[in-house]
Design a protein around this nucleic acid. Structure first.
Lengths: 273, 273
DNA sequence: AAAATAGTGTCTATGAGACACTATAGT
DNA sequence: ACTATAGTGTCTCATAGACACTATTTT
């Protein structure tokens, strides 16, 4: 049995190009006659789950489908990948086109490829998650819908998307509102996005992506509670966040509140080591 | 600000099919004339990173490419997705075909789609991770290679794949061995697989997948140390594992060892609640 | 008996939860 | 002065790390 510590330095890969190796004339000739399109292929789409937190509740951006299939149902913004762009680039392009959002946090989530997931034919979709603060989210030309999670923790599963309109927010109204009809398998995709977000919240500085540049600790706590769908301990939350090294006090304080104004903090990438 | 506990029960989705809704004649007519293949599409492949731990070291299953491109380099087992199967099914099919492995833990990892990642053309690959115990791994008709991770923790990045042959294992030989030439972006894929595995090890019962049905706590600790590339505290490891509820004592003990034989445990799925 | 590892008991340091207390804005 | 929230200090409890000690096998 061998015990070892983290490896120190990577050994360089020795590249002795043989006559048939990478970049050789032999390989060039092979590639020139290779027919990749000899096989039947699926279409590749990219869908984006855009989340924000407004008034202590997780919301997702959707649009109402005006065309078949699933006409009239709510769907995630997305589209087909182009042949000259990476998946991340496609997600960012579609986010800019469909939601007018640029410079936002985008991360690949999961690839959905069940044969029957889209009646138009075989479409594999690479789902992404985007996080944005409430102000920018509200300005996007997409419908805002509340996410209702029928499971706790990181159990996983589909979620409901509900619309309680302009009515003053009420817990009972939220709990009892009918779920909106969601297109394709997008309720599963949003569900997995919630699960992933919950999982990353405590271990990565992802919560800051849902806030503006300067924010109070209370706002950050609201984000965590909305994502987790549960209350968190105020004291230990403050200690953890301040000890994480991700927060930098600005010296400024919030304004216009009727109570003691809290200090504003800024998100800083933790220094290496 | 609203505080809420986990939601209790999901409200059923009300499905009133309008004349133009899901399954309607209108939709059927639309789908009949829809041409999905009007757009250019990439190919979709599935690659599998098969891991095991042998002699306290993480190993990966590879094969040597006999055809262009990247002829002679080591590559992950994989292949193209068929039009009638899901991504997970494709991974399991390819695992059975290429490695003779069935009934193993398989999980989707990440989808790689950089435009230049394969010189044959635009190929998007959905990478998967498979975990198997040492005995089944050794029986697979694939090359065994050691994984050398040039970063600690969950930093991430490419990894080296090294071959120290039949020489008695030696730390210095391992550290200084030249890295094998790996095809395409497979060194990145394996690197992300290591990162994911390390991340899941402490929070999910994934380590058991690398062991036979019955195992000692020491073997389980060896798995964790090999995956993490670091030593773990024996005492707290034992406590954590026994307290996790995933272990069930069999009453049997290991045989043929020259020291006090340890008790054998079995992996049990933790009971709900 | 010696060697080697399995397994237990206990002390300590750390971090989360709980709670009391002080501070500061608007009304 | 009152109220609501910000922010601090301290106590307790649970858990990880460390270490000493006992147990059980083969040689």
């Amino acid at each position: 049995m061998v015990k070892r510590r983290p490896h120190s330095a990577a050994t360089a890969t020795p590249l002795d190009l043989p006559a048939t190796g990478r970049g050789s004339a032999d390989e060039q000739a092979f590639l020139a006659q290779y027919r990749l399109d000899a096989f039947e292929r699926p279409s590749v789409a990219v869908d984006i789950v855009v989340f924000t937190v407004i008034d202590g509740h997780l919301e997702v951006a959707l649009y109402e489908r005006t065309e078949h299939p699933d006409q009239g149902r709510l769907a995630l913004p997305g589209g087909f990948m182009r042949m000259d762009e990476s998946l991340d680039d496609a997600a960012r392009r579609l986010l800019a086109d469909k939601a007018g959002l640029t410079d936002v946090f985008v991360e690949q989530l999961y690839t959905f490829g069940e044969p029957g997931r889209d009646p138009r034919g075989r479409i594999v979709t690479v789902a992404h998650v985007a996080l944005v603060d409430a102000a920018r989210f509200s300005a996007a030309p997409l419908l805002r819908r509340l996410v209702r999670v029928p499971w706790s923790g990181e159990t996983g599963g589909d979620v409901d998307v509900v619309d309680i309109g302009a009515a003053a927010f009420d817990d009972d109204a939220f709990d009892e509102a009918a779920a909106c009809a969601v297109a394709f398998d997008h309720a599963s995709i949003i569900g997995m996005a919630v699960k992933r977000l919950r999982g990353k919240l405590d271990y990565t500085p992802v919560g800051f992506q849902l806030l503006p540049a300067e924010f109070t600790l209370r706002q950050l706590q609201d984000i965590h509670e909305a994502v987790r769908g549960d209350v968190v301990n105020k004291d230990s939350f403050r200690r953890r966040m301040l000890a994480s090294g991700h927060l930098e006090a600005t010296g400024n304080h919030e304004r216009g509140v009727t109570w003691r104004p809290a200090e504003l903090y800024r998100f800083v990438r933790r220094s290496a080591v």
